[in-house]
């Protein structure tokens, strides 16, 4: 049996755990979500209001 087969492989970290442990990815998502759905969408709504004549 080759020697490398005896070396235990590191446990694979599940995707969801990797997501929760990636602070800066969470920071990006946490800022992007409200920026897109609340701020930008809200600004677009206001910008498309017709100007009174």
């Amino acid at each position: 049996m080759p020697e490398e087969d005896n070396i235990p492989k590191p446990e694979r970290i599940p995707f969801f755990q990797r997501l929760l442990e990636n602070t800066f990815l969470l920071l990006f998502i946490g800022v992007a979500m409200p920026t897109v759905f609340y701020i930008l969408w809200g600004i677009m709504e206001i910008a498309t209001i017709p100007v009174a004549e």
Binding site: M33, Y38, G42, E45
Partner: peptide
């Protein structure tokens, strides 16, 4: 906590619920 990160801040919108000019979809 992840649900907070994703959605909690969107609740800001409840202050705007009676403002004219903003769609019901938003």
């Amino acid at each position: 906590f992840l649900l907070y990160i994703l959605f909690l801040q969107l609740a800001c919108a409840h202050h705007i619920l009676v403002d004219p000019g903003i769609s019901s979809e938003w």
